[in-house]
Design a protein around this nucleic acid. Structure first.
Lengths: 232, 232
DNA sequence: ACCTGAACACCGTTCAAGT
DNA sequence: ACCTGAACACCGTTCAAGT
């Protein structure tokens, strides 16, 4: 029911000897391509959410016949995989790895990560169902390198990476689920407020009612980094 | 597209004056009820996963005509909400709140939480799309009380609760997505291993390859609690 | 090599109707 | 009050066929 890494270009065969003039070279319109499909899928997901992505609507948006997608893509699952990973692409800043402010670097990486996902709220809902794509793995790799340079022992790297990843995931998912629409947010707050007699501590903590998500995310991260920092 | 708190008993009207003999009182078979529907939904989700839950299959399993569910339940979203919250029920241990081992209490609560979700792997995939049900809120409330008794200031309670919640969510989701089936797990590990040249740090950390999920979860929690513990 | 429409086996949900 | 089947407007995907 899940798992395959790429899932893309299922039957894409080896290129022919000479790539001779394609439709793309003749008209301005680029031919149907995996890239265009993925880009359109992201647009569609941004506009209509996870349930709004339909193979037929996607084909429509890309100006192709309903079933043309299946030559480029195995199935709908693959579309989700590709859209998710494409949204998590990471461009490493040029001076990375040179400063000795490892904590600042980690903070930057994780905030960029979180921002990428919040820009596409459907990504949080999708992630738990999909495999780790190459862009996610790259982010983890770079994060691990920074921690390693900061002096985290190899034996602690697993826990460290995993805890930070969990923090980003959890924070993004929680926020995304409170942000689907203003109506929902208002309703949720209303609900939480109304429940104060039954949940006095939650009420007192103003859990999720203060809207300073960024601050809370960063504060939690600070706690984690305090614990993770190599003891000297 | 989401958000309503209960979503249940949409049109359940006020009870009639006298509950007179129902089918349930006459035969041994209990009549169709919200409870039976939710229980069957959990069974179905356990057996076939999120995509396996179909209103028709659910009705079948409960021995009812295909469309009878809609009298008890608003729609399929409500079924998901109810199934998710029912799986997260928490029975507080009797001596709770009396020991002064707050750290042990927090650990117990969070491990129980995580275990409940891992027992029903679909719950992790579902959670980011659903609202906070009463059982989740209760768990957060009890967690908050314990932290409060331990000396965490009200001003820090929000970050503390949220960070711990994020840790449980993230850890559960990551693990569930690696556990869907043994095939997938093997495939994922195969993939990670094969990628060692491109991701040397990940390889070195043996990220997600060591199968000591419980230990890693607990270690990460320890880091967090170290940071969260009231400074004295 | 690439794209297509018709067709199949499903969905969730509405509605008028039964008891 | 509670349950039902027929019907509607969709789905994802296969397949034989086009160029």
């Amino acid at each position: 029911m899940a798992g395959k890494a790429s899932g893309a270009r299922g039957k894409r065969p080896q290129r022919p000897g000479a790539p001779r003039l394609s439709a793309e070279a003749q008209s301005g319109e680029p031919a149907l391509s995996l890239e265009r499909i993925v880009a359109a899928a992201v647009e569609l997901l941004d506009a209509e959410g996870v349930d709004g992505l339909t193979m037929r609507k996607l084909a429509d948006r890309v100006g192709a016949g309903a079933m043309s997608l299946y030559w480029h893509v195995d199935n709908k699952e693959a579309v989700f995989d590709l859209a998710l990973d494409s949204v998590l692409e990471y461009r490493e800043p040029p001076q990375a790895g040179e400063s000795q402010d490892w904590r600042g670097e980690v903070l930057h990486m994780l905030e960029d990560w979180r921002a990428s996902m919040l820009r596409h709220p459907w990504s949080a809902a999708l992630l738990p169902r999909r495999a780790l794509g190459p862009n996610i793995l790259l982010r983890l790799e770079l994060l691990g390198r920074t921690l390693s340079r900061a002096g985290v022992a190899d034996a602690d790297l697993n826990v460290a990476l995993w805890s930070l990843w969990n923090h980003v995931m959890g924070a993004t998912i929680t926020r995304a689920s409170f942000e689907r629409s203003d109506d929902d947010l208002a309703a949720a707050q209303q609900r939480l407020t109304g429940l104060s007699e039954r949940y006095p501590t939650i009420e007192r903590s103003r859990l999720l009612l203060d809207n300073d998500w960024d601050g809370t995310f960063r504060d939690g991260l600070d706690f984690l980094l305090d614990g993770l920092a190599p003891k000297r």
